[in-house]
């Protein structure tokens, strides 16, 4: 038994092979490598890490986290419960409102369901509502509507529109064309066509996306409270401001548990629907 097919037949050094490169052009390859190297050098050069301060980090972290234990669920019990409930209201209301607003925008933003001008307008609405981070939007809504859950709800609604309308529109564009064509050939009106050809095809994913967004909205509601838009985030922020780290730890734990539970539940629901 030999280990090679060609043992004794061909000189092993006669032919060579190298794996094909991702970027075939050697010069371009070197240029890209160089560019990445330069970027990393520049980025780390301007990172301005204060190593002394970082070195202090460990004892600081220890002190900081020792303030966290044991988490104190009880002394601010009322405020935590209030914040949680507020978050839940915001989440439910914003998801419902957002989905409701998204559906016509999604239909308008699907190229196979709407004429070009409406398509452009709806796509612009989606792009605009996705550009800025929720927290930035929350800052402005708090300025406009005042502190509290209304601003939070408005923020989450807008964020939901940007997310849901876009994904739903993509889903409508991806439907099976022949089914849509068949309904159209029966002489159905546009609304009937939406009802018979589009709705059955996108329904499972539409429900799945709504559940997913409900989950995301709860997470976000914990964040936008930090800038004053109500919910558990506001409670968390207050705890930090008062240096009540044990209460903050309790709130963080609650958020983590709810987020994990919500994610598990939403995953289970989405699997069942789809």
């Amino acid at each position: 038994m030999t280990d090679h097919v060609s043992d004794g037949l061909v000189e092993p050094s006669q032919r060579t092979w190298a794996p094909p490169r991702l970027i075939p052009n050697a010069r371009l390859r070197w240029f890209i490598a160089l560019a990445i190297g330069l970027y990393l050098a520049a980025a780390f050069g301007t990172l301005d890490i204060n190593w002394e301060r970082v070195a202090e980090g460990w004892p600081r972290a220890q002190r900081f986290f020792s303030g966290f234990v044991p988490p104190d669920f009880l002394s601010r019990q009322g405020a935590i419960l209030d914040g949680l409930l507020e978050s839940l209201w915001m989440t439910a209301a914003a998801t419902a409102l957002g989905v409701l607003l998204s559906i016509p925008i999604a239909i308008g933003g699907a190229r196979n369901a709407s004429p070009l001008p409406i398509y452009m307008a709806c796509r612009a609405v989606m792009a605009l509502s996705r550009t800025f981070h929720e927290v930035l939007i929350a800052i402005f809504f708090v300025k406009l509507f005042g502190f509290g859950p209304f601003a939070g709800m408005a923020t989450l609604t807008l964020a939901t529109v940007g997310f849901y309308a876009k994904l739903l529109a993509e889903d409508i564009e991806a439907i099976d064309r022949s089914q849509a064509e068949a309904i159209r050939s029966t002489g159905a009106s546009w609304l009937q066509w939406l009802d018979y050809a589009i709705r059955p095809q996108v329904r499972p994913r539409a429900i799945g996306l709504a559940v997913y967004r409900l989950d995301i909205n709860f997470r976000e509601s914990a964040i936008i409270g930090i800038v004053g838009a109500g919910g558990i985030g506001a409670t968390l922020n207050t705890a930090f401001d008062r240096y009540e780290f044990d209460t903050a730890a309790a709130i963080l734990l609650i958020i983590i548990v709810i987020v994990m539970a919500a994610e598990y539940a939403s995953g289970a629901i989405r699997r069942r629907v789809q």
Partner: peptide
């Protein structure tokens, strides 16, 4: 959802 809107509006 209606209840949520109501509770939010209470705090607004």
């Amino acid at each position: 959802v209606g209840g949520c809107f109501f509770l939010i509006s209470e705090k607004t």
